[in-house]
Design a protein around this nucleic acid. Structure first.
Length: 568
DNA sequence: TGACTGCGCGCC
DNA sequence: AGGGCGCGCAGTCA
């Protein structure tokens, strides 16, 4: 990979100062491949440079230290880019990947590139041309040109350059999307949300006070449990009151509360549900997170070791069904909500090359396919068996179904079993595109050594085995969850490119939400059907990108709706 | 008062 | 059952 990347895009390195500190290295990048097709641009001139490139035919991949810090400023200036290479995210992947085990990049001591991205500046009005004021540049500027060169070498010298290139491109596009989705925001109707809260809880109370409905449920609990001072929000308090009232419960978990055979049970469960709603997605949440009809979560790309995204603040990945009615398309617009059906089992079938399992996946519902193949009797059994294989069930009905699953789908089961055994030995496992798991903690490795040593006690051996099994469940799940995350990134990247080609009179459809295996597009109503088609085409493309011709279908459920609660 | 932990529970 | 998260609260300790 030289100055042009695999798609023929010109690389432009964005550096924090006025001149690249390693100009010779940049020329070398440029000369390796197509001469003269790599440039660099100071961060302060970035938006001008991006605007200038828009009119040219050449595709550009903008190379910068970290998207969250740079791109947010561009978006505020009204500028969007097609492709990027996020040095920090890509470095994290390459440094850990077993595919690039021999690289110089991996041998480096940890440095500034391995530190978390510098805290981004708070949203503030910026002029169009200095979206990155000097004070936000890191104190000791790491050299992006040298870093890019080092990363390109690591990829070129790896055992899987093609897969790693795809992974790095997908991860970087994900970073662009995370910033774009934050800037665009999820359409959120505060009035609907408020009406919903008022209906369930009563009118908004003064800060710190319980809403009327919760207050009356609390009073009912105090009466029923003969505990006049009970605070139902306090677990110890509630547990004590329940036991004094003669209920044999060991905790106040919902599953345990459900076993209580007394009318007080329903009061308890309703209190729990409503107080959770109030604290997690009540009026205070709305005040903090919803502005101008938009909810803007902070996505953390690569925030989970498996490659899944996390969010910080707002709990965007846990929006309860209770409040989804408040997610409403603007007038004249629609929401296209799509989720990949049984994504993880399908991914497992593809990566293990298990043709029988792929056959079961040939339809909208993989679990029904397993039933139709005569492996188990019911859909629910099929689901538990499959999830048990992926998560590592050791007991219960799910574990009991494993032998049948193994007979029917030997290759799929062998893949997750091998990942589990590797983890138990303290080894690293790697996803389809080359993201490797972290090494186990020193505690576990120490346990392993202690248990293997002369004269290890029975207790030490037991502890080591337990740790090993725990880590094996993690690595078992890692390969499937991580590869599913890669499929989802490619799906979304492909969808993003297709959406950029659509435009209506009222505007352009854009992604507004992503949740592991689900996407939401906000679109002018007239384009909704085209968007739905694009979502499906993108899923087909993602499957082909990752698994080539292997015949696994990635079925989607697609809904065109006015509000989120109408989907599913 | 603030940092931290464990619990419980929402999502996939 | 079993993997991955984030968050709010209560309680604890410095």
């Amino acid at each position: 990979m030289g100055a042009c990347d695999e798609n023929g895009a010109v690389l432009v390195v964005v550096h924090p100062g006025r001149t690249p500190r390693d100009a010779a290295a940049l020329r070398e990048v440029a000369d390796d491949g197509t001469p003269g097709r790599a440039w660099s641009v100071p961060a302060g001139e970035l938006s001008r440079a991006v605007r200038a490139r828009e009119d040219e035919d050449d595709a550009v991949r903008w190379v910068w230290a970290d998207t969250a810090g740079v791109y947010r400023g561009l978006l505020r200036a009204g500028v969007r880019v097609e492709r990027a290479h996020d040095l920090r995210l890509c470095r994290a992947i390459l440094r850990r990947s077993t595919c690039a085990a021999g690289s110089a990049l991996r041998a480096e001591a940890p440095g500034p590139w391995d530190a978390p991205a510098p805290q981004e500046p708070p949203a503030a009005p910026t002029s169009l041309f200095d979206e990155l004021p000097e004070q936000h540049a890191p104190a000791a500027e790491p050299d992006p040109v040298a870093e890019l060169r080092s990363q390109l070498e690591a990829v070129a010298g790896s055992t899987e350059p093609g897969r790693l290139r795809l992974l790095l491109a997908a991860e970087s596009t994900g970073a662009l999307l995370a910033a774009e989705m934050h800037a665009d925001g999820m359409p959120w109707d505060a009035a609907t949300h408020d009406a919903l809260l008022t209906e369930l809880l009563g009118p908004r109370p003064l800060p710190g006070a319980r809403p009327a409905r919760l207050e009356s449920l609390a009073a009912e609990l105090r009466r029923a449990l003969v505990a006049p001072t009970l605070n139902p929000d306090s677990q110890p308090d509630l547990l004590r009151a329940l036991r004094l009232a003669g209920f044999d419960v060991a905790s106040t978990r919902r599953s345990e509360l459900r076993t209580i055979e007394d009318p007080v049970r329903d009061v308890l469960l309703e209190y729990r549900s409503l107080s959770r709603l109030l604290s997690a997605n009540g009026w205070a949440w709305m005040d903090q997170w919803v502005h101008d009809g938009r909810f803007r979560p902070d996505y953390v790309v690569g925030g989970v070791v498996s490659g899944r995204w996390a969010t910080s603040g707002g709990g965007a990945l846990q929006l309860p069904a209770q409040v989804r009615g408040a997610v409403r398309a603007d007038p004249g617009w629609r929401l296209v909500v799509a989720d990949a059906a049984q994504l993880e089992p399908r991914v497992l079938a593809a990566m293990s090359g298990d043709a029988a399992m792929a056959a079961a996946a040939r339809g909208a519902d993989l679990y029904e396919g397993v039933v139709a193949a005569g492996i188990v009797a019911t859909r629910s059994e099929a689901k538990y068996a499959m999830l048990g294989a992926i998560y590592g069930a050791t007991t219960g009905a799910s574990a009991a179904l494993m032998p049948r699953l193994e007979r029917a789908y030997p290759r799929a089961v062998a893949l997750v079993e091998q990942a589990a055994r590797a983890g138990e030995r303290g080894e690293v496992v790697t996803t389809w595109l080359g993201r490797s798991s972290p090494r186990p903690g020193e505690a576990f490795l120490g346990d392993l050594r202690a248990a293997a040593g002369e004269g290890a006690g029975a207790e030490e051996v037991r502890a080591a085995r337990r740790h090993a099994r725990d880590w094996g469940r993690f690595t078992r799940n890692f390969v499937v969850q991580g590869t599913a995350a890669e499929w989802a990134l490619c799906w979304m990247a492909s969808l993003r490119r297709r959406l950029r080609a659509l435009e209506g009179d009222e505007g352009r459809p854009h992604l507004v939400f992503f949740l592991h295996d689900e996407v939401m597009v906000h679109t002018p109503a007239v384009l909704a059907d085209e968007v739905a088609a694009a979502v499906r085409e993108a899923a087909v493309e993602a499957g082909r990108l990752l698994f080539g011709g292997f015949p696994v279908e990635f079925a989607l459920q697609v809904a065109v709706v006015g509000s989120y609660d109408e989907a599913k």
